[in-house]
Nucleic acid binder design. Sequence first.
DNA 1: GCATTATTCTAATAATCGTTGGAATATTCG
DNA 2: CGAATATTCCAACGATTATTAGAATAATGC
Lengths: 220, 220
Amino acid sequence: MNKRHTKDLLYEEVARIGKAVSSPKRLELLELLAQGEKTVDALAAEAGIDIKLASAHLKVLKAARLVEAQRDGRFIAYRLSGEDVSALWVKLRTVAEEHLVELKVAMEQIFAAPEKLDAETRRSLMDKARRGDVVVIDVRPSAEYANGHLPFARSMPLNEIRQRIKELPADKDIVAYCRGPFCMMSAEAVALLKEHGYRAQKIADGTAEWQAAGLPLAES
Amino acid sequence: MNKRHTKDLLYEEVARIGKAVSSPKRLELLELLAQGEKTVDALAAEAGIDIKLASAHLKVLKAARLVEAQRDGRFIAYRLSGEDVSALWVKLRTVAEEHLVELKVAMEQIFAAPEKLDAETRRSLMDKARRGDVVVIDVRPSAEYANGHLPFARSMPLNEIRQRIKELPADKDIVAYCRGPFCMMSAEAVALLKEHGYRAQKIADGTAEWQAAGLPLAES
DNA sequence: GCATTATTCTAATAATCGTTGGAATATTCG
DNA sequence: CGAATATTCCAACGATTATTAGAATAATGC
């Protein structure tokens, strides 16, 4: 019946989510999981941390119900427990980009040109891709592409580009994307393509950003 | 040039926002500030904590650039540093409501009927309010109403309802709202109105939820 | 059933955080 | 200028948290 006490309980529950997203490593894990289901092993490797530590962080995320685990034979696969979780990650990152000058500066130094998209740009990119005026390539590992990708995008994983570069039309603009604004794969892909004489550019969006903007993904 | 290191920096910056929202008290302060500018003093009183503690928490929020402070004579007023901050609060709370069973249960116990609104319901409520079929009342303190409120809503602060109850039409449905789903003022208002024979109900939305749903607020 | 591999659990340490009390600062009012 | 008020700074305590190492669990393949 104590009003103060019940209120405290409510905010404490929400703070469980806040605590879960208060660690850089956990945020990185969330972003990786936004690309699709992954094993502890794969997550630890990609995040550059010990498996034990990854497991501990995943446990925290699981306690906050942001991720779910499922045993699949010898491995345990983790996945986000809903689309809203990846939307939360996008929101957090967007607020950080908007308000933290340090982050803005860091990103400008790393990625020469910021390639933020607005609703209009996203739509027109899709139109051009549909008509075949540009070729949109998804440079993430193919399993992530299979889990969901931008409409009209074709899979061209970063580590296969060198071998498969001939598959790309030399007379069209190429637009590369990867896991999101923090991911460096699309920038590397663009550099590689330009070296070979292609007209290429990257966009900051990954599938999570695309979806958070209310646009549909394609599967298979 | 070390890829791992630069990535760590980026996630660390976002985690600054995460850390800022990892404390229940800070979340409560954010929700209060979403209702408009307030002094340390007022914030501490409403959140039920010591002024010193409130000041310390505000300092953390300020370091994360989620709030701004401005001296106004003898007082220092704090406010959110952008609309996206209150949208972040709404998103965090929404994810918590969606995934944390404990929170769902707690809210069902406190607020008998959940009054979640969808886009359709919000629109139709506005239509009815515009036509005068229902009377929407904002039961927050009048300063918060002045800072922004639902369109067609009139101000009727909880602690003035008893005196001013005659101002309300007895033959129309009354819809009360307050600061959001965690706020108990609208529930109290409804109880009071029903006691006096009015047909009244509450909605969970506050201005932050309304705005986060992409709908406009009214000012003055 | 035994060795192997993937993952989690336990324990321990150092670092960080929330909270409180007391002193210090800044502004207004007389 | 001096008193009063609002707010912050500083120091200190106990409570969490991140991280690492080592032991334990669970499923697989021979």
